[in-house]
């Protein structure tokens, strides 16, 4: 007889509502966070010293018609809060994020054209983090000895390598030096894309991979030392089953959290990697736009990044609640 069958029916439904309440709570937080973030992104424009028109135009001299068009578009003659809600409405209902001064097109089409590369890059890096990071952590945690020590040393160093330094080293060694990978561009087709994005994705993943590996190692070690695992060992449960059933399931909880947070933060770091490898993604658009003080593009891209960050974090928290039956409604995943 399995444990589930023994459980009273009420218990299961109680857990289901618990999870539902937790998910509902996280969704409310998601909306609150998105509201606040969009407010910060919108409000930043008006924190700048001087007139909003000069900030919006990046201190360029504009014709009176252009100034009037800007005032009209950003509703500069309305009160601040009205402006915010109009901007939010335009963004949410019409996908209208304004017009870029440097690209001379709609911000939404700038974003749409560049979104693909960034999402591919982040997805690729996320895969590397999950496979290599968790893999190394498991190896390190379960094996011990020389394997553990060498993985620990390598990940300690990798964790301190900023992605732009990693990108430069990889570019110098594998693209310029050995010529195994292309130095710039995105490539065509699946194979071409993979080939072009490998170095950038590794550069982006390196530090996070190291952190994930270290967390996985600690989680596995902690579980191995737990009493129920020791009991299972003494009961003679075969090692693979023991690891699968008693160690991995419990260790997966902190690991999921850290994987989620690091993947979510990849969006922000994609900027430097895209810049180094000449990939025309959202990140490089963000940097180019802030250098050119093209505020509309910066706002649009920042909004996309924050949304991705918050959504991924929420998904992780929900996954956490599903993975860990001990999570009660109201308690936080941390």
């Amino acid at each position: 007889m399995t444990a589930v069958a023994v459980r009273p029916a009420g218990h299961r439904s109680g857990r289901a509502t618990g999870v539902a309440r937790f998910v509902a709570r996280r969704l409310v937080m998601l909306v609150a966070t998105l509201f606040t973030s969009s407010f910060v992104i919108f409000g930043a424009l008006y924190l700048a010293p001087g007139d909003a028109v000069s900030t919006l135009s990046g201190s360029r001299t504009l014709s009176p018609q252009a100034v009037a068009a800007l005032r009209e578009q950003y509703h500069l003659d309305d009160p601040f809060l009205a402006r915010y809600f109009q901007w939010l409405g335009d963004t949410l209902l019409h996908g209208d994020l304004g017009t870029s001064i440097t690209y001379r097109e709609d911000v939404s089409s700038v974003i749409a054209a560049r979104m693909g590369v960034t999402f591919q890059l982040v997805l690729y890096a996320a895969l590397i983090i999950v496979v290599v990071g968790v893999g190394l952590g498991l190896l390190s945690g379960l094996r011990g000895g020389v394997v553990d020590t060498s993985i620990l040393v390598v990940t300690t160093v990798f964790a301190a390598v900023p992605s732009f330094v990693a990108a430069t080293v990889l570019l110098s060694a594998f693209a310029v030096g050995l010529g195994w990978f292309p130095a710039v561009g995105t490539g065509e087709g699946l194979a071409g894309t993979l080939w072009h994005l490998t170095l950038p994705a590794v550069a982006l993943a390196l530090a996070s991979l190291a952190i994930v590996s270290r967390i996985t190692r600690v989680a596995v070690r902690t579980e191995l030392g737990r009493e129920h695992v020791q009991t299972a060992i003494s009961r003679g449960i075969p090692y693979p089953a023991l690891v699968r059933r008693h160690v991995l399931r419990n260790a997966s909880i902190p690991v999921t959290t850290v994987v989620g947070i690091t993947i979510a933060s990849l969006f922000g770091m994609s900027a430097v990697v895209e810049q180094t490898f000449g990939l025309g993604g959202l990140g490089s658009a963000l940097v180019e736009a802030s250098l050119a003080r093209d505020v509309a593009v910066v706002q649009g891209v920042a909004l996309v990044f924050v949304t991705a960050f918050v959504v991924v974090n929420t998904l992780v928290d929900v996954a956490y609640a599903v993975l860990d039956p001990r999570v009660k409604a109201g308690s936080r995943a941390s």
């Binding site: 606040t36 973030s37 910060v40 969006f267 940097v287 802030s290 706002q299 924050v306 960050f309």
Partner: peptide, 11 residues
């Protein structure tokens, strides 16, 4: 929820 680098770029 706000990534530090992103906030700095915005600023």
């Amino acid at each position: 929820a706000f990534p530090a680098v992103l906030l700095a770029v915005l600023a």
